Simulated assay, not measured.
Amino acid sequence: MSIYVGNLSYEVESDDVQDVFKEYGTIKRVQIPTDRETGRPRGFGFVEMETEEEEAAAIEALDGAEWMGRVLKVNKAKPRENRGGGGGRRY
């Protein structure tokens, strides 16, 4: 399972997020998606921790917390929706 972290500063780096979350347990992975055109962070990210208990502790502690001048939105990540598409035109 993964944790969604929203309302991140556009200046944030994965090491910054890791420093905050390591207080709540072992971190397996931090992912900060970037904008394709600008290369800057998109304002959200995902954190994977070792156990669900660690994830629950991080969510409880950090949801609504202020960090880097922003109020964080932290919850369990939802599976990505299949939005179809493909971009091709049908004839």
Rank of each mutant, 00 (worst) to 15 (best):
G45D: 10
T38R: 11
V12E: 05
R89H: 05
A65Y: 10
I27Q: 10
K73R: 12
D16R: 03
K76E: 01
Y4D: 01
G85M: 05
A61Y: 08
S9G: 02
S9D: 13
Q18K: 15
K28E: 10
Y24N: 03
V71A: 11
V74N: 02
E52R: 02
G86Y: 02
A58G: 11
R36Q: 06
G25F: 11
V30C: 11
S14D: 13
N7Q: 14
R42K: 15
K73M: 09
R83K: 13
K76S: 01
A57F: 04
I59L: 05
L8N: 07
E52N: 06
A57P: 09
T26M: 10
N82L: 11
D35P: 10
M49C: 01
R70A: 00
G84N: 07
I32N: 02
Y4P: 07
P41T: 04
G43H: 05
Y10N: 14
M68G: 00
K22T: 11
R42M: 11
D35F: 01
A61K: 11
R40K: 14
S14G: 06
G88P: 06
E48S: 12
Q18A: 12
A58E: 09
S2K: 15
L62F: 06
N75K: 12
I32M: 03
I27N: 08
V20F: 03
G87S: 14
E23M: 08
E55A: 11
T34C: 08
P79E: 10
G25C: 09
T34V: 14
E48Y: 03
A61D: 04
R40E: 12
D35E: 10
E50Q: 13
G85W: 00
E52V: 04
D19W: 05
G88I: 08
P79N: 04
E13Q: 12
Q31T: 14
D15G: 05
G84R: 10
I59F: 01
D35K: 08
G6I: 01
Y10D: 06
K73E: 11
A57Y: 02
N7G: 00
D19E: 15
G87T: 03
K22D: 05
K76N: 00
Y91R: 15
W67M: 07
M1G: 15
W67N: 08
D15Y: 02
F46G: 07
E13Y: 09
N75L: 01
Q31N: 15
Q18H: 14
V30Q: 09
K78L: 09
F21S: 03
D19Q: 15
T34F: 07
D19F: 08
F46Q: 07
G45Q: 12
V71W: 09
S9A: 14
A61R: 09
R90D: 02
F44M: 04
G84K: 07
D63C: 08
G39K: 14
E48I: 00
K28S: 09
D15N: 04
E23T: 13
A58M: 13
E54P: 06
Q18C: 08
G69T: 03
